[in-house]
C-alpha cells in the first residue's frame, strides 16, 4: 500500500544537520537556476536570443504587472528582484517536483514497527521542495519580513511601526493589533497554501499512478504543471500586493 508522509523524509545527517529529500531537491533547484543564470549572463546580448528571450519575456511580463501596481517603472524595478526570485524559485521547484524519478527513486530503510517487528519503509531521494513545510514556511517568513523591511525603509521605522502600535485612539490601537496578528497569519497562509497545493498534487499523482499507472496520470501531470505555475504566481503576486500596500502612504 502507498505510504504517504506529510513530513519530508530524512536522508542523512551531516554533523547533526539533518538533510531531507526536500532540502536536497531545493538544492537541485538552486543549482539549476544558478546554471541557467550563468548561461544567461555569459550570453547576454543587445539582440537577444535563446534563454535571454525567455527571461526577457518573463521579466517584461512581471514588470508590466508591477508597473501597474506600483505606478512607476522605477519602483517596479526596485522591488522586482524579490518578487521574481520567489516566482522562479517556486515555479522551478514545482516543475522539477513532477519530473519522473522525483519520489520514485530512493532506498528502503528499516524501521522498528509498533509491535516490535521491523518495517521496511521506502524513502525517496527527491521530493518536491514545496511539499515540505520547511521550504514554504521559510519563504513565507522571508516574504513577510521583506514586506515589513521594505515598508520601514520606504516610510521610516516610526511610521511603519505606527501601523501596528498606535496609541492615538482606541480604534487605531485595536486595528494595529489586528494588523500585527495578520502579519503572522500571512506567514501561515503563504506557507500552507503552497504546501497544501503541492503536497496534494504529489498525493494525487501518487494515487493515480498507483491505481492506473498508464495514460491516466497524464492529464493530472498536466494539471500539476498548471498548478505549479499558478501557485508560484500566486505567491509572487501576493508578495507584490503586500509590498505595494506596505510602501504606500496612508
Amino acid at each position: 500500500m502507498l505510504h504517504i508522509q506529510i513530513a519530508a523524509e530524512k536522508i542523512t545527517e551531516v554533523f547533526g544537520f539533518p538533510i531531507t529529500n526536500a532540502l536536497l531537491t531545493s538544492w537541485v533547484v538552486f543549482a539549476v537556476l544558478t546554471a541557467l543564470v550563468f548561461f544567461l549572463y555569459r550570453n547576454i546580448r543587445m539582440v537577444p536570443a535563446g534563454i535571454q528571450n525567455v527571461f526577457e519575456a518573463a521579466t517584461e511580463a512581471f514588470l508590466g504587472l508591477m508597473e501597474g501596481m506600483f505606478g512607476s517603472r522605477e519602483k517596479a524595478e526596485r522591488y522586482f528582484p524579490l518578487i521574481a526570485t520567489i516566482f522562479f524559485f517556486v515555479v522551478i521547484s514545482n516543475w522539477l517536483g513532477i519530473l519522473p524519478g522525483v519520489g520514485s527513486i530512493g532506498f528502503f530503510e528499516e524501521h522498528a514497527g509498533e509491535h516490535g517487528e521491523t518495517e521496511r519503509l521506502f524513502v525517496p531521494l527527491f521530493r518536491s521542495a514545496a511539499s515540505d513545510l520547511n521550504f514554504t514556511l521559510a519563504l513565507g517568513v522571508i516574504a513577510v519580513l521583506f514586506v515589513n523591511f521594505l515598508g520601514a525603509s520606504e516610510l521610516g521605522i516610526g511610521k511603519h511601526l505606527a501601523k501596528y502600535f498606535s496609541l492615538k485612539n482606541p480604534i487605531d490601537f485595536f486595528v494595529g493589533i489586528l494588523e500585527f496578528i495578520s502579519e503572522f497569519a500571512k506567514m501561515v497562509s503563504f506557507s500552507f497554501r503552497l504546501f497544501g497545493n503541492v503536497f496534494a498534487g504529489e498525493v494525487l499523482l501518487a494515487i493515480t499512478g498507483f491505481l492506473a499507472p498508464y495514460l491516466v496520470p497524464v492529464p493530472f501531470l498536466g494539471l500539476e504543471v498548471f498548478v505549479g505555475f499558478i501557485q508560484a504566481l500566486v505567491f509572487a503576486m501576493l508578495t507584490m500586493v503586500f509590498v505595494s500596500i506596505a510602501v504606500s502612504q496612508h
Partner: peptide, 17 residues
C-alpha cells in the same frame, strides 16, 4: 535547521539572480 537552510538557500539565490 531546515528552515534556516531553506532561508539561506533563498537569500543566496536572490543575490545570485
Amino acid at each position: 535547521k531546515l528552515l534556516a537552510a531553506q532561508a539561506v538557500n533563498f537569500f543566496v539565490l536572490l543575490i545570485i539572480l
